[in-house]
Design a protein around this nucleic acid. Structure first.
Lengths: 260, 260
DNA sequence: ACGTATTGTTCGCTCTACGAACATTGAATC
DNA sequence: GATTCAATGTTCGTAGAGCGAACAATACGT
């Protein structure tokens, strides 16, 4: 049982299917800036050989997840089944949605629910009233966690070790001049969030956008979801958010605690 | 409905990576009714052996697409990256969203955009005002194409051979007593849609739901997307839809033609 | 035209992924 | 509590799937 110091990967991991990893890598190679890719493009982007890229693309094509006009490959709507399997499987989305709609109806503002995936938040449900953000954000959209109220509301309640690791690796990239980029200031913001039980973020993600978010504490004490309300900074003051919006978010959060 | 694993006629399809197919199968095994699965469950659902199911689940776990408490496995939000790669890659979603929001704002009704995937429509963008449908429909949701306005608007403009094949295989399942289930009546509805350039569907999908949809004709002449507006049948007459809503949908459709 | 740079495809060999066999856990019966 | 049986989870020798170097085809510059 001598542990070979073979730094080469696959240290005898008989239970790891490398082909699956590569296949998923190929799917993720397609993004907004590269909707159509040639076989060689995929090989470069993923770091696998052209021969392998070809095999995976042909496989995806045969399975209906991709299509090709001979030279260029692109993904088909079928790949949505993969992501959507999660949404409906967790069924978080479906459970949260009614709460968001009620909140939006009462306030006339947009509300959302998101979860944390590594350093991003991912929207799992939305109820949008009017268009407030410059970019269209739907279910599945990602934003950096550090400059969003949703992100901070979740981050503040993460286990200490995970949070520490996050703080060390994260690049607090500025999205506006107001974005907090100093690590100790950021940590202070998280502490404040934890102390008061909610996060308010003013124009740190985008000009004119103010948002308030609360964590959803689950029965096991863990926090994986947060709810928010956002509106134009000019129209809604931070005080109004705390007075009018916070109670609504809190009651929704409390209700969800007993469902999840 | 389920695609058979394509019979490799001993042609020894050297370019097909079976491991990828099985891995994707494992991901799709998780759904609303089964959010958490054991290794054996997955084996049964997918038809692969337990040993293989274990390898794929462990691989997915190591890659962060799944997690496990030792016995039960579940998907993580990371799988959204797979489906979302398509949405943002196509970037249809982002391009269409602003149009929907404008339409919804002007009419006060819910609007959506969808594409066709085999016999279903898949929502790629939504702008919901109030909750009209009993089921929460978000981006990625599927509905049978035959009984929706969106589906008919796309189907009517499909190439003849593809449409013929669809008509032969489709089961016109009734969702309400009003659903058109007779094939020649259905074909007539498609012909009418093509003739007038839009589809109206009255309570064929769900009681009280009336919807109007127009195709988005792309520069190459093909139709892959449709836009719709829907509202309560009692509140909005078919005539009002044609008079007030149709022009809005048409102008959005025209604008999109030059973007896509 | 020619060279060459890049992309796409083949095919013999290797090591991955396979699954029967084995081990373990759980439930039911006496 | 012991015993059986059923069902789940894990191991490991081996077949054959997937690997990639080598080859072919195609685009591109001069």
């Amino acid at each position: 049982m001598q542990d070979q110091p073979t730094e080469d990967q696959g240290t005898g991991d008989r239970d790891f299917v490398a082909s699956l990893e590569k296949g998923l890598l190929v799917i993720e190679a397609f993004d907004a800036s590269r909707p159509r890719l040639t076989l060689s493009d995929v090989a470069k982007l993923t770091g696998i050989t052209r021969a392998a890229a070809r095999r995976y693309l042909l496989t995806l094509t045969k399975l209906g997840y991709a299509e090709s006009d001979g030279r260029y490959f692109s993904l088909t709507p079928r790949v949505l089944r993969l992501g959507y399997a999660y949404l409906s499987s967790a069924s978080l989305s479906a459970q949260v949605q009614p709460f968001l709609e009620r909140i939006s109806e009462e306030t006339g503002e947009s509300s959302s629910a998101a979860i944390l995936d590594s350093d991003d938040i991912v929207y799992i449900a939305r109820s949008a009233t009017r268009r407030i953000m410059s970019i269209g954000l739907g279910v599945g959209s990602r934003l950096p966690a550090h400059c969003t109220a949703l992100g901070r509301a979740i981050l503040a309640y993460q286990p200490e070790d995970g949070l520490k690791a996050y703080l060390q690796r994260v690049q607090l990239e500025a999205r506006t001049p107001k974005t907090v980029t100093d690590k100790s200031a950021f940590q202070a913001a998280l502490d404040a969030t934890r102390a008061q039980g909610y996060a308010i973020v003013n124009e740190e993600l985008e000009y004119g956008l103010r948002s308030i978010a609360v964590p959803v504490v689950q029965k096991n004490g863990r926090v994986t979801i947060a709810l928010n309300l956002s509106g134009q900074a000019g129209r809604i003051s931070a005080e109004e958010m705390e007075e009018r919006f916070l109670p609504l978010l809190r009651s929704a959060s409390d209700a969800l605690r007993y469902m999840l």
